[in-house]
Amino acid sequence: MNIYDDFYRGMDPNEWEFFAVDFLKTAGYTILDLPTIGPDGGKDLKVEYEGKKYIVSCKHFIRSGKTVNLSNEENILDRVVQHEVDGFIGFYSTQISNGLKERFDKLNSNPKYNYTFEYLDKYLISQYIPCMNFQTLQKFGICNGLTYVLNVPKNDYKPLNCLFCGKKDILNPLNINSSIVTVYNYNNEYHYAYGCKSCIPISIFPWADIAQVLHLECLMDWNDEVDFIKNEYKISEDFYKYESIFNNRILQRIYPSNLGTWI
């Protein structure tokens, strides 16, 4: 079973087409025609990549579990010619049959045709989902609509209270969007701090939103920035203490990498 099967299953065929739009945008394609209601002439959308245009055919069979076969993708070459494009992309929530794969292979290897025929099945799509924007994935139902995750049992959870007011847990979902982590200069020393935006001094730099560093790639970028400051400037005696507390407790809320990226 693919770890994204439930995610795919939660979409209806129309949503699957619009998921294809966002997926291909992330992959660098320009969307030329969006999905429409009614007859589409054998295309669900039209895209462009590196100067070449493609029609995209979306098949969403995840709920039945059946493969996409030749009868589901008839007249592929005729459709490419009809829409005056350079190729065809199949976007499928299940796998394709051997017969359809052979059809793609023969079309691609035939020297008479200067077209490209490609497909993305659920396994190929799944490899690239971690590169997509988390907010986009949420739109289509990933994480079952949860805004934030908790990676430890509730009884083991340790709050990360604001270092300034000492009251608010900045990892509480109600406070995440109004909290930051920062390194700031005070009395010619750099201090590590985290807390409510309203509590932290205005003149701080650098800083990062807590909602942002819940994504692993953003947390790594933040720590790289902090490492540069530690190597180049004088830091306070409690710098390492608060840095360690922050890095340990942020892991309680960090998003799994398969839920996408910050941007």
Rank of each mutant, 00 (worst) to 15 (best):
G90C: 08
G195D: 00
I170W: 14
L214A: 03
K122T: 04
M132I: 00
Q212H: 02
P130W: 11
S179G: 03
I180S: 00
P130C: 08
L150P: 02
R103Y: 05
C131D: 07
S97N: 02
F205T: 07
V81C: 03
Y184H: 13
T94Y: 04
H83A: 06
F134M: 13
Q212N: 03
D86A: 10
Q82G: 01
E118Q: 01
L137P: 08
C131S: 09
T147F: 08
S179K: 02
N187L: 13
T136P: 04
Q82I: 02
G166P: 01
T182V: 07
G145N: 03
K112Y: 15
D121T: 06
I204Y: 10
F134W: 14
T116N: 05
C143K: 13
P201I: 07
K106F: 10
F134K: 15
I96N: 00
D209W: 03
F205G: 04
S198R: 12
Y192A: 11
D121G: 01
D169S: 12
Q135P: 04
V181H: 10
C162I: 04
S93R: 03
D169G: 13
T147R: 14
N98M: 09
K197I: 06
M132A: 01
N133W: 02
N98V: 04
V81E: 12
L171S: 09
Y115A: 04
Y123V: 07
S203P: 08
Q135A: 13
A208V: 05
A193W: 03
T182Y: 00
H191W: 13
N151K: 02
L171D: 09
K139T: 14
G141P: 11
F134E: 14
F88H: 09
N133G: 02
I200Y: 06
Y123A: 02
Y148R: 07
G195Y: 04
K106L: 15
I125F: 03
P173T: 07
I96Y: 01
Y157A: 09
L120A: 02
C131A: 04
V149W: 02
Q82H: 13
G195C: 12
L214C: 07
N144P: 11
L214T: 08
K101F: 04
F140D: 10
K168A: 09
G145A: 07
C131T: 08
S97A: 02
L214M: 11
G99E: 06
N161H: 08
I170P: 14
H83F: 04
Y186S: 13
H215Q: 06
F104D: 01
Y123G: 06
N133H: 10
Y157L: 11
T147D: 11
Y194V: 03
M132R: 03
L163T: 13
C143W: 11
L100S: 01
Y128G: 01
F91R: 01
A208C: 05
T94K: 05
N185W: 05
Q138G: 07
Y148T: 12
Y194W: 09
